[in-house]
Design a protein around this nucleic acid. Structure first.
Lengths: 244, 244
DNA sequence: AGCCGTTTTATAACGTGTTCTAGTTTTTCT
DNA sequence: AGAAAAACTAGAACACGTTATAAAACGGCT
């Protein structure tokens, strides 16, 4: 009777894996809730485990480390690839900045959630060799940016002999640096988008054709204007006054 | 007799501060030795204290945190300002890259020492608001780069309406990102210099005058060639093969 | 010399990420 | 149904950064 036929369950993972998956999702959910509620205070493995109704050892069995759990929260939260593919701008450079804006929008729209998340990611020294993101996601991202740069080249906006991979990595370093400063609190949330975009604009203009340079110049000025203090024309230092 | 005249010791801090300073230096020395001996394994506050022949509490009294101790090691080790001022290249852009090479040379010359140092700096979540460097040092660095960019502008190599502060920050983000990846082990030491320099070249070319762009283009190609695999012409991915 | 305030010391303690043990469930296989 | 394998559980334990506590040392002062 309860010998439920496994008609179409050829790849169905069996009850064991299923329960495991459910525990996994409970843990991720617990971590997410804790971040949402109290930032990164109280985001301890013991808390996560208690919240997920599992033993302290279980997250380690299923994920391996706190970093991996947090990373799973991160992955879970974003449907970047889908929205990325929907970007439809006139030229590759505009698409590039749309993509950047899209990526950043996640963080600026919900900074109280994402800032602790990044912080937790940057903490917990990567004993393993995982960078800031899971390898799979990283590869996907790399490919996406690569494609955009390639498109820009073929549209005659970027240099014909563009060292695409190296430039892509440069943009990645730039983004990392910006995110690092933001996560550590050195960069206010309002400055996140223009800081990154200005860097992208400047760097891309460095490898652009004259046509591409013309497109990028107004962006450079626009973003740097967004970063300059709202008031006077001198553009003095508002935040830092070098005391001592 | 032993009433040693304090002739020129008007600001001499007295024996108390002196002993404190000595303890401080012993602690920094201990931290440095430990890093040199075993990388960042065994670099614990308990170890540092034991090695410096002080109580565990003392480093906290004198520095405040492990991060601060490590930072002190960092500061101590470098006479960057001196050597920086000795840079004498034809134009501002060349000087800029000389400065970059100088900064990076510290790390590439002694990676086994500096990598753990950076790692320890990036760990230990910045509970305080100190960025990656002490504020004083940061201000000095900022000023130096600022001056170089300003010189480049006045030499007609960089755009006349260059948003200097914002570009300086962009370069800083870039450097942070590169250092982060290097410290985490994602970037091999040989790639540290060209990765950073390529980023600088690309970004600077984005805000350069035609004259400046001509100077920077060969650099872009040179650095990206240094980054490309030594062998074939296809320039395939050597390191990562996306298994699974 | 003798007091007093500051600082170091020794030590315990807290909370953390992580690992390990042994015991208990739960699924799967025969 | 019963055995075997796999997973989770509870709990202790370790090393860590950091803080707190009381006692001891020490330097500057009158």
């Amino acid at each position: 009777m309860q010998d439920q036929p496994e008609t179409e369950t050829t790849e169905e993972p069996g009850k064991r894996e299923q329960a495991k998956a459910e525990r996994r999702s409970r843990i991720v959910q617990a971590a997410r809730d804790l971040i949402r509620e109290t930032g990164d205070t109280n985001l301890s493995m013991r808390m996560i485990a208690k919240r997920a109704d599992v033993s302290l050892a279980t997250p380690y069995n299923l994920f391996g480390s706190k970093r991996a759990v947090v990373l799973a929260v991160f992955e879970d939260e974003r449907d970047f690839a889908v929205r990325f593919s929907q970007i439809q701008a006139a030229n590759a450079i505009d698409r590039l900045f749309d993509a950047h804006a899209l990526a950043v929008s996640y963080f600026t729209d919900d900074p109280d959630f994402y800032r602790p998340l990044w912080k937790a990611l940057l903490d917990s020294q990567g004993t393993d060799e995982t960078g800031l993101v899971t390898p799979e996601r990283l590869a996907r991202n790399r490919a996406a940016w690569h494609a955009l740069l390639e498109a820009g080249r073929q549209e005659g906006l970027l240099m014909a002999d563009l060292p695409i991979d190296e430039v892509e990595r440069t943009l990645s370093y730039l983004a990392n640096g910006v995110m690092l400063n933001w996560a550590m609190g050195a960069l206010p949330t309002e400055a996140l988008l223009p800081s990154g975009a200005l860097g992208y604009a400047v760097a891309l203009r460095g490898v652009a054709t004259p046509a591409g340079q013309d497109i990028l110049l107004p962006r450079i000025h626009a973003y740097s204007r967004m970063l300059a203090p709202t008031g006077e024309a001198t553009g003095g230092a508002r935040l830092r006054a070098r005391s001592t």
